[in-house]
Design a protein around this nucleic acid. Sequence first.
DNA 1: ATAATCCCGAGTAAAAGACTAGGGTATTCT
DNA 2: AGAATACCCTAGTCTTTTACTCGGGATTAT
Lengths: 139, 139
Amino acid sequence: MLISTRGEYGLRAMLVLAEEFNADPVPLRQIAQMEHLSEQYLEHLFRDLRTKELVTSFRGAKGGYKLSRPPAEITVGDVLWALEGSLAPMRCVAGETDEACQHKDGCSTRFVWEKLKAAMDEVLDTTTLADILARAAKE
Amino acid sequence: MLISTRGEYGLRAMLVLAEEFNADPVPLRQIAQMEHLSEQYLEHLFRDLRTKELVTSFRGAKGGYKLSRPPAEITVGDVLWALEGSLAPMRCVAGETDEACQHKDGCSTRFVWEKLKAAMDEVLDTTTLADILARAAKE
DNA sequence: ATAATCCCGAGTAAAAGACTAGGGTATTCT
DNA sequence: AGAATACCCTAGTCTTTTACTCGGGATTAT
């Protein structure tokens, strides 16, 4: 019941890009060094971030990545969903691949998972990268 | 980022006991049959539920398990915490084994995990087994 | 041309998850 | 007393997921 390193590292990397939003693209090597992460591992994460159109890539020398949208328009949920796949506490409320609950007799626990997911979504969908930067700046 | 089968099965089993709170102890075999679960696997879960004092066991013929407290005094969080170990999205906010965040430069993502955990705890700590039964009865 | 980058498919080692096996112990019913 | 019922406990195993590494190819600035 934990966010994996994909989500953790990915969010940290996205915050670096958020800080550099008005500058040149940032190469992964630089992010890796700043955040003490494996460059090769980051590449995998960024492949997903790119296909989900959260970042734009620039190839070749002087290349790197930039956010596709301003930091205020990217939520934590966007990032985690792209990297973790799903953020629901239970498959039956994950949406996406709507695999029905196979308990005919009305799964009584489902409403708990729905409440839990709603509470999580509330935070994930309202917190943006800009919010995090603003919060960090105050300290 | 999912609740495991431990939490899922355990909660379902606890709901059976909640329904039978005023009756005789319920043997695991019966719960296993009703919920289509492995009896042996349930035994493992109930060991944890017992050490966390959520259920009381009665050995021998006519034995089984009963809730240690009324259904209105056992929350979903109690059950899941007993079975899943921790319910935080990130180790650094899990409490318990307080392993400090090793980012000296003030981990800016931490506040997200704290908000997320708070939102989850709100649901987990306020929803009781009695609430779930009441909800299920309405349908 | 060359160096700096992103791009991509495999492969792998470790950990976690989801159980099963098989014995022991306490209690009750007959 | 003895059989049956049930909890109790330690191991072990199989599968899936996680967290990476490896090695090469494509693209672009200088």
